[in-house]
Design a protein around this nucleic acid. Structure first.
Length: 103
DNA sequence: CATATGACACTAT
DNA sequence: AATAGTGCCATAT
């Protein structure tokens, strides 16, 4: 049972700050943590997120409003987001600028 | 320690 | 608009 890295904990902690009905981006989280260029590392961290519902990692999308990836499949990710009120069309978030949270 | 991988972002074409 | 190529960082092996 290895402990998680600080980086991971930081990423997950940021995710928890995203309210339901809103989303954030990998770059925004990376910046909030302090390494604005670690966007890929952020994705890696979320991919290994062991706290599925506890950490709303499904609310993290790409900087251009596209959905991005998801460990359980992007279709599932879209489904959850829509369930929370986010509208998606053609793999992109509708009114992205109005629901994105940049911290 | 060196190399490979990936839920990304940006620029150039 | 869509497709490559490049950069960048933390993990995994």
């Amino acid at each position: 049972m290895k402990k998680h890295t600080k980086f991971q904990l930081n990423v997950w902690d940021m995710c928890k700050k995203i309210p339901k009905g809103k989303v954030s981006t990998y770059s925004a989280i990376a910046k909030a943590i302090g390494n604005k260029n670690a966007v890929r590392a952020v994705g890696n961290a979320l991919n290994k997120n062991p706290y599925s519902p506890k950490v709303p990692c499904h609310r993290v999308v790409k900087a251009n409003g596209e959905i991005g990836g998801f460990a359980r499949g992007k279709k599932e990710k879209i489904r959850i987001l829509e369930k929370e009120g986010i509208k998606i069309r053609k793999n992109k978030i509708v009114e992205f600028e109005k629901v994105v949270l940049r911290f």
